[in-house]
Design a protein around this nucleic acid. Structure first.
Length: 299
DNA sequence: CCCCAGTCCTGCGGGC
DNA sequence: TGCCCGCAGGACTGGG
């Protein structure tokens, strides 16, 4: 599932192909499944972007931003199973959109591939970009948060810290996998109410976020057993080999070798942690639902 | 303010 | 062997 490190890996992988190149075509993939959300519809998207030079390829939280010369931008949200590819898709059946570019007479393509189709592609005006990517909807990027940012933002809400880490308005870019890994590295129990975290806790959380996310980028992200996430060459990332808690329920903790990894459910999401490395501060635990109490419907 | 459930979607795997 | 259904969760919405 693409979170900040996976999206950063995609951006780095497509940058050399797209940045400075001229967009000569925008083609739907020949996938017969239900179409992904595109805004505006394909034809208008083609008309508005045709023959423009792609000036910048950047990342905003978990979104990919292709800025064109008229300052409009493609904003791509991979969500659960979306991938940007420069070659060799996992299958042809889930190709959704192709950007055909040209530079110095050389033609290349970048594809958006998405098995489940929860991803979105939008072409936004500068004003729309501000609405969609601005501070009203997205907090500071997780890698750009300062210690003071972390402290004031966690003080401002009263929620389990794991749930707070998933709130993209509070901090942008962290998803379910890295939230568990970050809290484990910081030695903070996921149920700790955010406003009770001490300065020392927040310092550890800040450092752990930097360390985990930067290491995950170095390893080109995490490819889980379901094989969903891959880099732009359709190759596995390798950060999954460094995971300490995510999806490791019942296993021995690799850090302390004393605890057994537990799974709990918070805000309808799985959280994994080591009860030995991540001791709950007294009286500050908020709403932790044991797995047995999980509702079986919905999700 | 915060929480919960429901929505979108597809592939996979457990259970019968 | 085959079918049903739960589960995975990012972003969002509506109700309590």
């Amino acid at each position: 599932m693409p979170e900040l490190p996976e999206v950063e890996t995609m951006v780095r992988g497509i940058r050399s192909t797209l940045e400075g190149a001229r967009l000569v075509g925008l083609k739907p993939g020949d996938c017969h499944c239900k179409p992904i959300l595109m805004q505006p519809l394909l034809q208008e998207m083609q008309e508005r972007s045709r023959n423009q030079i792609i000036r910048q390829v950047t990342r905003r939280a978990k979104r990919i931003v292709l800025t064109l010369e008229d300052q409009s931008a493609f904003v791509i949200e991979p969500r659960m199973t979306g991938l940007m590819l420069v070659s060799d898709p996992p299958d042809e059946a889930h190709l959704r959109l192709e950007w055909m570019v040209s530079r110095q007479r050389r033609r290349q393509s970048v594809w958006f591939w998405d098995r489940r189709g929860l991803g979105t592609v939008r072409l936004l005006t500068p004003e729309e970009q501000l609405q969609t990517l601005g501070p009203a909807r997205l907090g500071p990027d997780a890698l750009e948060m300062t210690g003071d940012d972390w402290f004031s933002r966690l003080q401002a809400v009263r929620r389990p810290v794991k749930v707070a880490l998933l709130d993209q308005k509070l901090v942008a870019g962290i998803g379910n996998l890295y939230a568990s890994e970050i809290l484990h590295r910081a030695g903070i129990h996921p149920g700790t109410s955010s406003e009770t975290l001490s300065r020392a806790h927040v310092t550890r959380l800040h450092a752990a976020t930097q360390e985990i996310l930067l290491a995950a980028i170095e390893h080109e992200g995490s490819t889980l057993g379901d094989g969903t996430y891959r880099n732009v060459l359709n190759q596995d990332g390798s950060y999954q080999n460094q995971h300490r808690v995510y999806a490791k329920e019942g296993g021995a903790c690799r850090t302390c070798s004393r605890g057994t990894i537990l799974r709990i459910v918070q805000a309808q999401r799985s959280t994994f942690y080591c009860p030995h490395c991540q001791k709950p501060p007294r009286k500050s635990i908020r709403k932790v639902t044991p797995p047995s109490a999980r509702k079986s419907s919905g999700d």
